Simulated assay, not measured.
Amino acid sequence: MKLSSYCASLAVFLFAATFSLATTYPSVQALTEDSLESVSINFLENVAGFNMTIYNVESFETFTARSWDQHLETHVHIILKNGDEQIDVHLTFVDGAFWSYDISLPPDQTLLGSEKSLSDYLILAKRAVQNFGALVNLTWCEDYANMISENIAGDSTIENQNAILEVVYNENCSTQLDTLRYVKFRWFDKKDNFTIPRLSLALSKTGLVTTFLRNLCYVATTEVDISEEEAISIARSYAESYAAKHNLNIVSVNATLKLERDWKWTRGSDNYAMYPGWLVFFTFDRVENGVIGYSVLIWADSGTVYDYGPQGFYTDGKADAPLSGTVGLIVAAILSSIIAVQLMLRKRGK
């Protein structure tokens, strides 16, 4: 795979993973290339379900760098080959802890193997979560695995006192990506009035685990002391000021209570911490230079305004509305990761 295409796929993957959440924070560990290879191959065999006796490791590449938010990110790129079949594997570790895994194929290629039965997918997903827990020493994985029962048929939502499991089947497979992510499993923790995405995986039609994401943020507090009405009142002056300056009128307002990551380190030294926040969105009466509304994010436990700015969309390859606040930080994260790939890639062919 060319470095440019690898950077592009990594950017997309990082953008998706940027929004991940969890309830524990990993300790910093020293990862040598040998230990990375051992853990990665172990993951492929015991979690992803690869039969490594028939695959040749064509290349094994790693790079490690401090990310824009000062966390140590280690990326692993493996090329597997079995005859004419080629599979590109990407794994990411943050501060020594497993974060994510996915695979990609050349455009005209499909995975070898036959389609599995519904019961097979359930068994394979359960085994993957159990083996992942054993690999990285996470006891809660067993609780998640036990939520998968043989009674699940088709799209399902399973809920217990502490967690929610969503199972989604992609019945209409029209693209390569559809076949790679044929069945999706997503687990959410329940904490007070919030649901927190924590673990997800996807299986191909042939039964391989093709994506696996462990979320690494944690909840600092769920305390809510600011009401919806108070949040809207605090936010309104920001939106009205912008609307008056640009001759716009506010036609509707919506407030959503959600857990938000402290991207800008305003509440301490750990920006993996999450806090409850009111996201207040004001919709304008018309689109002006791509701007459709204005959003204000307010911490629900303190009433402090965390982020604010106009919201819009892209047209003709140009940003009609400027990126602001947290959105800009997310873009910075992607760009810094791509730069790290270009500057720090280490190659070791086999």
Rank of each mutant, 00 (worst) to 15 (best):
T283H: 13
A22T: 09
E115P: 01
A235L: 07
K205G: 05
G349I: 14
N51V: 02
Q130S: 10
F284H: 10
Y6A: 07
N170G: 10
L36V: 07
K191Y: 06
R261Y: 08
F15I: 00
L297R: 04
T210V: 01
C141V: 09
A145W: 03
V168P: 00
L124P: 01
T221Q: 11
W278V: 07
K318Q: 03
D316M: 10
N254D: 15
K347T: 10
F63R: 15
L10K: 01
T175C: 02
V296A: 04
I79A: 11
L248M: 13
L177M: 07
L257V: 08
L216E: 12
E288K: 03
D155G: 11
T18F: 12
K350L: 08
N172M: 04
Y272P: 00
A319M: 10
S302A: 10
C217A: 15
K184W: 00
Q311Y: 07
D69Y: 14
D143H: 10
K2F: 03
I78S: 02
A134D: 06
I148T: 06
I54D: 14
D69T: 09
L80I: 04
E230G: 05
F13R: 08
H90N: 07
L72Q: 15
T139Y: 06
S114N: 11
P26H: 13
S35H: 01
D34F: 12
A97M: 14
N137T: 06
L135Y: 05
Q29P: 01
V224L: 10
V12R: 13
T266A: 08
T18S: 14
D189A: 04
R198I: 14
F281L: 11
Y55H: 05
T32D: 08
S40Y: 02
R198C: 15
L216T: 05
T157I: 15
T32E: 04
D270Y: 03
I339A: 13
S104Q: 05
A255F: 10
R198S: 14
F98P: 08
Q86R: 14
I334S: 02
F185R: 02
G325C: 05
K2P: 10
L343H: 09
E45Y: 03
E115N: 04
S114A: 12
V341M: 03
E150T: 05
V94K: 13
A220E: 15
A340H: 09
D95A: 11
N82Y: 04
V47S: 09
L329K: 12
P106R: 05
V253G: 06
V224A: 12
T256W: 04
I234F: 08
A235K: 01
S27A: 14
Y294M: 00
L105F: 07
F19V: 04
V12M: 03
L14P: 00
Q70V: 06
V209C: 14
F284P: 10
S241P: 00
S38V: 11
G49P: 02
S4Y: 11
E260V: 00
S269P: 09
S174E: 15
F60Q: 02
T23M: 15
P107K: 14
G154K: 11
D270A: 03
Y275R: 12
T256M: 05
R261V: 11
S117M: 09
I292K: 02
T195Q: 13
K318Y: 00
E142G: 02
S100T: 14
I54F: 06
L3E: 04
V253I: 11
E223W: 00
I103R: 12
E166F: 12
W265E: 12
Y272A: 13
